[in-house]
């Protein structure tokens, strides 16, 4: 593994992230819209059990959504790099495919975690009470989930060569992933077929882990669906699988 290459891939992503103000602004605007427009409206319609407002209930889901979009966006930039040729510079270097995948995965992790932290800072506004330990817990989950989704995005990017595929990925993969993740409604209330689809979605476990950390003692329909240990195990195993498969797929050029 080449750490120099991993480092420079992350540094490049970070530099571009800071430079592109519009990306940062829209990354922060999206969760705000969901929390305060959709959340506030829905709060009038549904009132979850246990004295929790709907806006509070979707907070872990919105954190997960922030991670989903920013991680996928970062990884999908590989398709841009392919289209504009820059990816050949990376593929022609004396660097193993594993290092490239890990480097890109960590790139997504860094920018995605930063955005998740910005959203996390909103918790007092929503009337949530989080202790330092919980915040650290959320941070660790955010890092693990960001890496998992980023490597999933890299896997997607290996199948596409042109940026026209971006809307396909957004509409047919990212949006369904978001809605079938337990972000907007508890998985245990879903009809069976949807519940199954939800359980196949890596984001579900990330959001569930966040629910575990943010509402630790909640009971009833709004509580977490799995144990924190299960959530983290699934995220880690999937991350490793995505890294290994993506590295393999990059090799396939005949």
């Amino acid at each position: 593994m080449e750490f120099n290459a991993i480092y420079v891939l992350v540094a490049r992503e970070f530099k571009k992230f800071i430079r592109e103000r519009s990306r940062l602004v829209s990354a922060i605007a999206r969760p705000l819209i969901w929390l305060f427009l959709v959340g506030a409206g829905m709060s009038r319609l549904v009132s979850p059990a246990g004295g929790m407002s709907y806006t509070q209930f979707i907070f872990p889901g919105i954190l997960g959504m922030t991670i989903l979009f920013s991680s996928i966006f970062s990884s999908i930039s590989i398709i841009w790099d392919k289209e504009f040729g820059f990816f050949r510079e990376i593929l022609a270097a004396p660097v193993s495919r594993l290092s490239i995948v890990i480097g890109k995965g960590l790139s997504g992790t860094v920018v995605s975690t930063i955005q998740a932290v910005i959203v996390l800072l909103l918790f007092p506004v929503l009337g949530l009470n989080l202790g330092l330990l919980q915040i650290i817990e959320v941070l660790i989950i955010a890092i693990a989930l960001s890496f998992c989704i980023s490597t999933f995005g890299i896997l997607l990017a290996t199948f596409y060569d042109s940026y026209e595929s971006f809307s396909v990925i957004m509409n047919f993969i990212v949006m369904p992933m978001f809605f079938l993740s337990g972000a907007m409604y508890p998985v245990k209330l879903l009809p069976k077929p949807l519940a199954i689809a939800t359980k196949l979605n890596p984001l579900t476990y990330g959001i569930d882990a966040l629910k575990n950390a943010i509402f630790p003692v909640e009971e009833g329909p709004m509580s977490a669906d799995f144990s924190l240990a299960t959530d983290m195990a699934v995220i880690l195993i999937l991350s490793i699988a995505f890294v290994v498969i993506a590295a393999r797929l990059f090799e396939r050029k005949k």
Binding site: V8, R12, A93
Partner: peptide
């Protein structure tokens, strides 16, 4: 989207 200088530094790191 990077400067000329950054492109070359990127390359230098990539090649160890």
């Amino acid at each position: 989207d990077l400067t000329a200088y950054e492109n070359l530094v990127f390359h230098a790191y990539l090649y160890g």
